[in-house]
Design a protein around this nucleic acid. Structure first.
Length: 514
RNA sequence: GGCCCUAUCGUCUAACGGUCAGGACGCUAGAUUCUCAAUCUAGUAAUAGGGGUUCGAUUCCCCUUAGGGCUACCA
């Protein structure tokens, strides 16, 4: 009871602390999401700290990718961005303190020396551990070495004790510090290494809970020891299960796309990715599985986080993405698809017409016309909306839109004669079928040229023939140039009477080929 | 090798110690249908093994097995 009260009073502050040494990873994204959900659920703060102490590997482009990915996913930070590279002064203070307190010492051992030692230990089947050679150097020796400008690092005098912590997800976890050895905590007085930097920053930033991947679990005892030496209060830990590839090893590049930005490029909606990722290692305990960010915030709890790793099931993500695509309004979906059509160079935006867009900057897609590159025809947003709409339920990823609808943006379709053949039809039968369609379609008035009319009239005729495919397959193939597509009625309506007839004519010509 | 973590359908997972072990994705079949989707219906498939504890274990304990993570002057 009192514990519960205490929990409420405490300010929840969480963070993610990625290193900008690669693109924003899907695993980092999930860690970010869980931190964010936990913070929002408890009116706490979510913070982003860039861990760029490794100057060689850290790149600004990766930091940008992280920021961009977070924005795309709709995960907002509550405070300004922190960079470890800008906090040297803070670290220096604590590194000196550790040295003064005799919790740390200068180590002048050579890398080669250490490496040989390690190999030797390993070959004897012993756990590799620093032998403590420099642990008891006298002040004089240290001074002397420093004066000679010998290169050094700073090591932590790892105390010999049991470290026990209560993981919010796993419960009791125990380590023996004996196995750890004197770890290197800083390269010099102002550049700490990961374990130290984390401890200092989490304290300075008043972080209350550390929610991170299970791959960090063995860092936890080191960090707890450092906290104790520095006199910092102990934090609450929650180690998330890992996201796994199909072979059940930690999700990595060799499994395929791991960067959030890659998924974004492929046309996965943020809603789908969030929903999918949330259910990787967490569940609401009910059978509900469609969750908006709002719903997740409402229902999330660390208690319901799984302990075992979760395999990234791309098929399920695709299904969710298709689901969310189907939920979009046609306008919104069209806006989302346009960049892919531009990318495929089917279209190009034309100059904006100033008089039209005046004061309408917030609706660029609706006020901008497009030129079909192949035909130089000018089309508007509504036309694109029609095209996108008939593919809405067939789309799994936005990127598929261009290959699905490219035939709307072409003048002449190129395909093999065989495409027009339904079952065992002969060439003459195909030609007659096309002629029949031509005949029927010619008779429809331009103002009545819509899919309902087309369907009524063509279906009636197909019904007379008996096997509907005899009429409809060649027609649809002629209009789309594809084995699979939307219905011929929908396509014809968008194409318009004139182009529809033109394509039928082209098809007849193709059948006549040898 | 050492330390740590984990274990329910192929995958994500549900199940106060008492359920015909449930749902979803996938897959298969059917309905619909010119095609591809979408949609609807049905089917498929799991408690790793062995010991306890208990009237009763998916559930609690132990062992085994299997898998994973970590083992840097990276984070």
């Amino acid at each position: 009871m009192s514990g519960e009260k205490e929990e409420k009073l405490e300010k929840i502050r969480v963070r993610i602390a990625p290193a900008p040494t690669g693109l924003f990873h899907i695993g980092t994204a999930r860690t970010a999401l869980f931190n964010y959900l936990f913070a929002k659920k408890h009116q706490g703060k979510f913070i982003l700290r860039i861990e760029d102490t490794d100057k060689e590997r850290s790149k600004l482009e990766f930091e940008k990718d992280i920021l961009q990915g977070l924005k795309y996913l709709g995960i907002e930070m509550d405070e300004k961005l922190y960079r470890q590279s800008e906090r040297s002064d803070i670290y220096e203070k604590y590194i000196k303190k550790l040295l003064e307190q005799d919790n740390a010492y200068h180590c002048f051992c050579l890398k080669e020396e250490l490496e040989a030692q390690k190999q030797e230990q390993l070959s004897r089947g012993k756990p590799p551990k620093y032998n403590g050679k420099c642990r008891n150097l006298s002040k004089k020796e240290i001074k002397e070495n420093l004066k000679q400008e010998k290169s050094f690092v700073i090591r932590f005098k790892t105390p010999n004790e049991k470290i026990i912590f209560n993981d919010l997800i796993r419960g009791h976890v125990e380590f023996d510090s004996n196995l750890i050895g004197d770890i290197v905590i800083a390269k010099n007085l102002s550049t700490p290494l990961y374990n130290l930097a984390v401890v200092i920053d989490d304290f300075e930033m008043k972080i209350s809970h550390i929610i991170r991947g299970e791959d960090h679990i063995s860092n936890t005892p080191k960090q707890i020891l450092l906290q104790r030496a520095l006199g910092f209060p102990e934090l609450k830990y929650a180690h998330l299960p890992l996201i796994l590839g199909p072979d059940r090893t930690k999700l990595s590049k060799r499994h395929g796309a791991t960067a959030v930005s890659e998924y974004q490029k492929q046309g996965y909606l943020a809603e789908a990715l969030i929903n999918f990722i949330a259910l990787l290692g967490w569940n609401p305990g009910t059978e509900k599985e469609i969750f908006s960010m709002r719903a997740l915030i409402k229902e999330f709890s660390l208690e319901r986080v799984q302990k075992g790793g979760a395999v990234f099931n791309a098929k399920r993500l695709d299904w969710l993405n298709g689901f969310y695509i189907r939920q979009k309004s046609p306008e919104k979906l069209t806006e989302l698809c346009i960049p892919y059509l531009l990318e495929a160079e089917l279209l190009a935006p034309i100059e904006r017409q100033k008089e039209i867009i005046k004061g309408l900057h917030e609706l660029p897609f609706k006020t901008t016309g497009y030129k079909i590159l192949e035909t130089e025809e000018i089309i508007n947003f509504d036309f694109l909306k029609k095209i996108v709409s008939i593919y809405q339920e067939r789309l799994k990823k936005l990127s598929e839109i261009s290959e699905l609808t490219d035939f709307f943006f072409k003048d002449k379709l190129e395909y093999d004669k065989e495409l027009l053949r339904w079952k065992e039809m002969s060439d003459d039968e195909i030609k007659n079928s096309l002629k029949k369609s031509e005949e029927i379609i010619s008779k429809i008035n331009t103002q009545d040229f819509n899919k309902e009319n087309l369907k009524n009239i063509l279906m009636a005729e197909a019904e007379i023939i008996g096997d509907r495919g005899k009429l409809l397959w060649p027609l649809r193939a002629a209009l789309s140039g594809k084995k699979a597509s939307a219905t011929p009625f929908e396509i014809a309506e968008i194409l318009g009477k004139q182009k529809t007839l033109k394509r039928l004519g082209q098809a007849k010509e193709i059948v006549s080929r040898k």
